[in-house]
């Protein structure tokens, strides 16, 4: 079967985006945080709203709004501080370090595009499964969805916005010291 050039361009773009996310997961799990921070635009919003139990006719309030309390609502400066905190050696919640694996899957471009031009953006959805184990038996499994705005930057992308939806209302983890 012959693939059209358009189809090939799309598949090539998807592979590039998948590679971007797989590389990101390795940076996090190998604690290569400086490289990881460089994936984010200086004006990034890294936002993890809270999920609530609401009635069928009140679903608009199922996820907290942009000006409401969230689990996390960071700008780049705060992300940099979180990384600095992890690297102090005195951040007891991650000292000794946790063992973490990020599984990223269900990667989808939401728009029908085959290329992203320099400086242009595209929305990419994905699922995450983050396994964290620390000390002896303490274990958390965090599962959810991400919606990123990626901006083309030369041979790679930068994340200009990340929305993280975790599939829990009462959080079952004692803290959120992992990145999503």
């Amino acid at each position: 079967m012959e693939l059209s050039n358009e189809r090939l361009a799309y598949l090539s773009l998807m592979r590039e985006i998948e590679d971007f996310y797989y590389a990101e997961a390795d940076m996090l799990d190998e604690r290569d945080y400086d490289k990881w921070l460089a994936l984010f635009a200086d004006d990034v919003r890294y936002w993890m709203p809270i999920r609530k139990n609401v009635a069928f006719d009140n679903l608009a309030r199922e996820t907290t709004a942009e000006d409401d309390i969230a689990w996390i609502d960071d700008d780049k400066a705060t992300l940099v501080k979180r990384v600095k905190q992890l690297m102090t050696g005195f951040h007891w919640a991650e000292e000794p370090i946790s063992r973490v694996s990020h599984v990223v899957t269900n990667i989808r471009l939401t728009e029908a595009v085959t290329t992203i031009a320099e400086g242009a953006t595209a929305t990419v959805k994905s699922r995450f499964l983050i396994y964290r184990n620390r000390l002896e038996t303490e274990t958390d499994i965090l599962v959810g969805r991400r919606e990123d705005m990626l901006r083309r930057k030369g041979e790679t992308f930068e994340v200009t916005r990340r929305k993280i939806l975790i599939e829990q209302s009462v959080l079952r983890a004692k803290n959120l010291t992992v990145f999503f």
Partner: peptide, 21 residues
């Protein structure tokens, strides 16, 4: 709002270490 939640809560950079202890 942003200051409060980077301080407190499960992702709060202060509260996280309390909870470990």
């Amino acid at each position: 709002r942003r200051y409060y939640i980077r301080y407190s809560g499960p992702a709060g950079m202060t509260e996280q270490d309390d909870m470990e202890n």
